[in-house]
């Protein structure tokens, strides 16, 4: 019986995560060359449906479910949302402020103006930031459907 208990604890300890410097989420990242966020946002139609790797600082994490992050773009003020399937990948709150490489499929979300305003207002309220509905000029949202990510520890 002692041997069984010992084996059990060895299994449990083996399952504990290694204190790796970079944490891998989902299927990780396999594409080597990064696509600048600015390139995607400048010409979304050229990228929709394509799998890309983007790199940048994680500036926001979904506080409720960890189901999205915003990666800062290479140009000041630009960012792109990486949405993952609930539960498949869960980004921890500690990911904010960390550098990340993310792989995902560029997708276009078409919303009505009301839906877009409502969504952005909700985000702004969550982050305690002011929001002016008049600033909403584009009703389509370009984001990545996240497949995997590597986040620096």
């Amino acid at each position: 019986m002692k041997k069984i208990v010992l084996m059990f604890w060895l299994l449990v300890l083996g399952a504990l995560p290694l204190q790796a410097k970079t944490e891998i989420y989902g299927k990780g990242v396999s594409i080597q060359e990064a696509t600048p966020v600015s390139a995607i946002l400048d010409d979304p139609d050229a990228y929709v449906g394509k799998t890309v790797r983007v790199e940048g600082l994680i500036i926001d994490v979904c506080a409720k479910r960890g189901c999205w992050v915003y990666v800062a773009g290479d140009r000041q003020g630009e960012k792109i949302q990486v949405k993952v399937t609930d539960g498949e990948i869960v980004f921890p709150m500690s990911a904010s402020g960390r550098m990340a490489a993310v792989e995902g499929v560029v997708e276009e979300l078409k919303l009505s103006r009301e839906q877009m305003i409502s969504y952005l207002q909700h985000l702004a309220e969550e982050k305690g930031q002011p929001f002016d509905p008049d600033t909403v000029t584009d009703e389509r949202m370009i984001r990545l459907r996240g497949i995997g990510a590597e986040i620096e520890g």
């Binding site: 500036i59 800062a72 003020g77 709150m93 500690s94 402020g97 550098m99």
Partner: peptide, 22 residues
């Protein structure tokens, strides 16, 4: 301190462990 990000001319984001400051 984890990182600092200048979102725009008027907004600074400061990331420290367990606290995101805008």
């Amino acid at each position: 301190l984890k990182n600092v990000y200048r979102q725009d001319a008027d907004t600074l984001k400061i990331f420290v462990v367990n606290n995101n400051i805008t």
